[in-house]
Simulated scan of single mutants.
Amino acid sequence: MHSLSSHVLDTTAGKPVANLTITLYTPDGDTIKGTTDNDGRCKDWGDTRFHPGEYRLRFHCADYLLKTHGDTFYPFVDISFILGNDTSHYHVPLLISPFGFSSYRGS
């Protein structure tokens, strides 16, 4: 069975982002809210069963960036990705700063 996790890091401050809201959008049209823990990680999607298809994570980063850095260009960051037919773990990290972001498929 597929599993999904994420990790949010503030590249300007050099630390994880705690208590950041993340919304998961599933291929079925469901939305599930998650929140990063004190280490900036999120892997709790309730009882969601992951199947192959296109998913999207929305990272609600404006409040954090405004509070921490006083400015931001991005109110949120959306990352769309495809879960394949394999049954592996998917990890989607986000590296943020007030004026840039980056992501990749992690492990």
Rank of each mutant, 00 (worst) to 15 (best):
Y64D: 00
T87A: 02
L94D: 01
V17S: 11
T23E: 10
L57I: 06
S103Q: 01
V77K: 09
D47F: 05
Y25E: 02
T72M: 04
C61L: 07
P93M: 08
S97G: 15
S102A: 15
H60Y: 12
D10G: 04
L66V: 13
G14I: 05
D78R: 11
V92W: 01
Y74W: 10
S102I: 03
C61K: 05
C61D: 02
P93C: 00
D86I: 03
V92F: 01
G46P: 11
G70E: 13
R49I: 13
D28Q: 14
R49N: 14
L83V: 00
D63R: 14
T11S: 11
T36N: 06
N85H: 08
S6A: 14
D39C: 12
N19H: 15
P16T: 08
S107A: 09
S3E: 06
D86L: 02
G34S: 15
D37Q: 14
A18D: 11
G14A: 04
H7D: 12
Y64G: 03
N19Y: 14
V17M: 10
L4D: 05
L95K: 15
T21R: 12
T12K: 10
Y74L: 09
D30N: 15
S97A: 13
G53Q: 05
Y25A: 06
P93G: 12
T23K: 07
S80I: 00
S80F: 02
F50N: 05
F59Q: 01
H91Y: 05
G70N: 14
P27A: 08
S97C: 11
H2I: 05
L4R: 04
L4G: 09
Y55P: 02
T36H: 05
D71W: 07
L4S: 08
R41D: 14
D10V: 09
I22T: 03
H89F: 05
F50E: 03
P98T: 10
N19I: 04
P27Q: 07
L65S: 03
F101N: 12
T21M: 09
T36V: 06
I32Y: 03
Y74R: 09
T26L: 04
T31G: 08
P52H: 06
V92P: 03
S80W: 02
G40E: 06
G40F: 03
L94P: 02
